[in-house]
């Protein structure tokens, strides 16, 4: 436990010092929220899902913030590899599982903090938190998304030599995961041939879970969402650990 905490702590210290990163990763979902939200609010009408589009979009943007921050946190291991710091951890008498878990929780924590920031900003553009329980449910789903995708980032980073592949992963893996998740539009509005694809996207369940917590309505039952994203988080952690074990420097 103490080792996991140590690695987590390092992630926190680094996070708190990187002001530009905090601002940088908050800006994208924030702009999406403002431009799409205000721009489409009057033209988009979503049946059965609350009265306006901003309300619908907010959970999606919270999820987006968590998703991008966590993938990035995971992939940062490559920098530790390049700048040599990873050696310092790998040669210490600690297990790779401890390092991996510390890194995962560290990344998930920063991602959740970023998500909460979007949530707080959303309060000014129309978010009305239904209840404390609702907030906690949303928080729980954010944690699961954070863990899943930090672990995913670590898994990718374990197989990558440098940051050159990062953009590729972002464009061809992370962005489709985000786009197909129902963060921007209700999954039922997709053509029938495409909508099954969204059901294979783990983020769909995360977004739906957060939406259930924040707005009280969702298209997928929260229990189902919890099972899928929870299962995905476990699976990613196992895969991430497995690949991180084999990392060589």
């Amino acid at each position: 436990m103490d080792i996991i905490y140590t690695i987590w702590l390092r992630n926190m210290i680094r996070y708190m010092r990187s002001k530009s990163r905090i601002i940088g990763s908050i800006s994208m979902p924030l702009f999406f929220l403002l431009f799409l939200g205000f721009g489409l609010n009057s033209v988009v009408n979503i049946p059965r899902l609350g009265e306006n589009y901003i309300q619908f979009l907010i959970p999606g943007m919270v999820a987006m913030s968590v998703l991008f921050t966590s993938v990035f946190s995971g992939i940062q291991i490559i920098w530790d590899k390049q700048f040599g710091f990873l050696k310092e951890t790998l040669v210490a008498p600690v297990t790779r599982l401890e390092i991996m878990l510390g890194q995962t929780f560290g990344g998930a924590t920063t991602a959740v903090i970023q998500g909460i920031m979007i949530m707080v900003i959303s309060l000014f553009v129309g978010l009305k938190v239904q209840s404390v329980l609702g907030f906690l449910i949303a928080l729980g789903f954010m944690v699961l998304i954070g863990i899943s995708f930090t672990a995913f980032g670590i898994a990718i980073a374990s197989r990558m030599e440098d940051m050159t592949g990062f953009q590729l992963i972002m464009n061809f893996v992370i962005f489709p995961i985000f786009g197909l998740s129902g963060a921007l539009f209700p999954i039922s509005s997709l053509p029938s041939w495409l909508s099954p694809v969204t059901m294979f996207d783990p983020l769909t369940y995360g977004v739906e879970g957060i939406r259930y917590g924040l707005t009280g309505t969702s298209q997928i039952s929260p229990i189902m969402s919890l099972l899928v994203i929870g299962g995905f988080a476990c699976a990613m952690t196992v895969i991430g650990t497995f690949l991180f074990r084999k990392i060589s420097i």
Partner: peptide, 19 residues
Amino acid sequence: QSLDEELTAAENMDFHGRL
């Protein structure tokens, strides 16, 4: 080099001590 450049000297030492 295998230091964490974003941390202070004392923090680098502390991290090692904890590990």
